[in-house]
């Protein structure tokens, strides 16, 4: 145990070149997973931001925990489907409970949200720690995930060809489904987000879309869970969308910017993590914060330039 804390010097070779040259397999899967998580979460999160429900993302990311753990204890395996179902049920249940509390009592919606998600999360943590022997989900993993273990997961193979580690493939599939749904219901999603009254008068059900979005959100959160954990998934939900919205007013353009932003999050985050030897998920959140700060500065300068040119 040394008495001093040393900040490692930035070494181009060690931080940037070696990961790609010495263990390319690991690096590729980690960066790809980071990119997918940031991209898929970011796309869903963009709509959360537009609907002013960013904190609902926070609430659900905490609430899915007991569902995950119970599904895990029930089936005694880490099979995808039960875990997804458990998390989905817990997520939707918490949304219903929040609505119920603020409809039926004088407690305001923000307080109701705070009460419900912390209760769910507390139950989840108690379950995790009480059954710690049976679960290879430990408490730290719940909080900040471990993307670095992703390449160690069993590979998915199709017709004899190895595709990639299970979490990455799962995330990719979820991403495809989200993209498909977004493509199918794009107009409806925009209408219900920006003008629920108009949407209702057009015969769309804002409520159905609300719950649909909540279900998609729960699924996305669960599939990102093991990579980034319960709290940092919030960073992945909000930062990409917020960064994109600072750079453009147009929703389609913002969506088109997401893959690039996600790539930056993943690459910067990974290399930061290598540099300082810290958790990848945390450094991805830091990278996302830094990127947002840059976008914010650009936004402010842009606004000033636009004002002075008038």
């Amino acid at each position: 145990m040394s008495a001093r804390l040393e900040i490692p010097a930035f070494d181009w070779l060690r931080v940037v070149v070696e990961p790609w040259a010495l263990y390319p397999e690991t690096t590729i899967w980690i960066v790809l997973m980071g990119w997918l998580v940031s991209l898929v979460c970011g796309a869903v999160g963009l709509f959360l931001i537009l609907r002013r429900m960013a904190m609902t993302g926070d609430a659900i990311s905490h609430s899915v925990l007991p569902g995950l753990v119970l599904a895990f204890l029930w089936t005694a395996s880490r099979a995808t489907l039960p875990m997804m179902l458990g998390a989905l049920i817990a997520g939707v249940l918490s949304v219903i409970l929040i609505e119920w509390i603020h409809r039926s009592s004088r407690v305001k919606p923000d307080a109701a949200m705070g009460i419900v998600f912390s209760l769910f999360f507390a139950v989840g943590v108690i379950l995790v720690t009480a059954y710690a022997d049976h679960i290879d989900l430990d408490a730290d993993c719940v909080l900040y995930g471990e993307i670095a273990y992703v390449p160690l997961e069993p590979m998915w193979a199709l017709a004899g060809i190895e595709l990639g580690p299970a979490p990455v493939m799962r995330m990719a599939m979820v991403g495809l489904i989200v993209a498909g749904l977004g493509f199918l219901f794009f107009k409806e999603l925009i209408t219900t987000s920006f003008d629920p009254v108009l949407a209702a008068s057009l015969g769309l059900s804002p409520k159905a879309f609300h719950y649909g979005l909540m279900i998609v959100l729960s699924v996305v959160i669960v599939s990102s869970f093991e990579a980034v954990g319960a709290i940092l998934v919030v960073a992945m939900l909000i930062f990409p969308g917020a960064t994109a919205l600072l750079l453009t007013h147009r929703l389609r353009l913002a969506l088109a910017l997401l893959p690039m932003i996600a790539a930056l999050h993943s690459l910067l985050g990974y290399h930061l993590a290598v540099w300082f030897d810290v958790t990848v998920a945390g450094s991805m959140a830091v990278a996302a914060g830094g990127l947002l700060a840059i976008a914010w500065a650009v936004y402010c300068i842009w606004a000033r330039v636009a004002r002075s040119s008038h």
Binding site: A54, D58, I231, G241, A285, V286, G289
Partner: peptide, 30 residues
């Protein structure tokens, strides 16, 4: 950006930084 997005970002961004610092200290074992 509205308050909820700003709060979410500060929450997650700061928390991420905190987790990084904690793991940094932990792995340096000082």
């Amino acid at each position: 950006l509205k308050e909820d997005a700003a709060m979410g970002m500060v929450l997650a961004g700061f928390y991420g930084l905190g987790v990084c610092l904690l793991t940094f200290v932990q792995r340096q074992a000082v």
